[in-house]
Simulated scan of single mutants.
Amino acid sequence: MQTEADTHRADELAELARHVREGVGRLNWRMRSEADTPSPGPTVLAVLSRLYRAGTHTPSELAEAERMHPQSLTRVLASLTSRGLITRTADPSDGRRSLLDITHAGRVVLREYSISREQWLAAAMERALSPTEQQLLRMAADLMLRMADS
């Protein structure tokens, strides 16, 4: 049986979750709009980021990891390959499958976009937050990363 205190705690956590989601969403939107480098697009960023962080994937593994339909990725992967941002090679253990990797050029695109967003964010933190608030934000960022990895 749930007590009144349990219900109150659940309501507080739900409100905190909404507040964090809204803050993260608005900050993400603002960083995209303020970045000096135009966004390559959410799907392109997702593919490049996944290959950068997690390494080689098959197209189906990539689709599953990003919760996308493989057919939705076909054009994106063809474009990224033709632009030299990813490579597609035959899987040595199964010639019917291909393996995708990010190239140096893909890393450069990803990093330039990230740097632009980080520069805006650093300037905004300098303008808007005291040193104590910056330290609190560092702690909150660590907590968010821990939640994301759990």
Rank of each mutant, 00 (worst) to 15 (best):
E61N: 12
V44Q: 01
V20L: 11
G41T: 01
R117Y: 00
P59K: 08
M31F: 07
D149F: 14
T56I: 05
R117M: 02
L51C: 05
R117K: 07
T87L: 07
A17W: 13
T7L: 14
M31Q: 03
P59R: 11
A63Q: 10
R96H: 14
H104F: 05
G25C: 09
D6H: 11
E64A: 11
G41V: 03
G95A: 14
L27Y: 04
T58P: 08
S72I: 06
S150I: 15
D94G: 10
S60T: 14
Q119N: 06
R146T: 13
T3D: 02
E22V: 11
Q135W: 07
R83L: 13
T56W: 14
P131K: 06
S60H: 09
E61Y: 13
A14S: 10
D142L: 12
T58S: 14
P42T: 13
M68C: 07
G23K: 03
E22K: 11
V20A: 11
I86A: 08
R75W: 06
L16N: 07
H8I: 12
R53H: 05
L48R: 00
V108W: 01
S72V: 08
R107T: 08
A105D: 13
D11S: 14
L129N: 00
A10P: 09
R30H: 01
D11F: 14
T58R: 11
M139H: 10
D91N: 10
R146A: 15
P40C: 00
R53G: 08
L45C: 04
E66C: 10
V47L: 09
S82E: 12
A46R: 06
R97N: 15
L73G: 10
W120L: 04
I86F: 02
A141L: 11
Y52C: 05
T56P: 04
P59E: 10
A123S: 12
D36A: 00
D149P: 11
A10M: 15
E22D: 08
R21P: 02
S72F: 07
P70A: 10
L145M: 12
L13I: 15
A105L: 09
V76L: 06
W120Q: 05
S150Y: 11
R107V: 03
T7P: 09
E64F: 12
L73I: 02
P131W: 01
R83D: 15
E12N: 12
I115G: 01
L13Q: 15
T103D: 06
A17G: 12
I86E: 06
G95S: 15
M31I: 02
L143K: 10
G55S: 05
A122N: 09
Q2V: 15
A140H: 15
L13C: 15
T87D: 07
S130C: 06
L110W: 01
H8G: 12
D101F: 01
M68W: 04
Y113C: 01
L121E: 02
L16Q: 11
E22S: 07
A63T: 08
P42R: 06
L99Y: 11
V24G: 03
T3G: 06
E64W: 07
P131N: 04
L85D: 04
R53M: 05
T89G: 10
N28R: 05
G95L: 12
D91F: 12
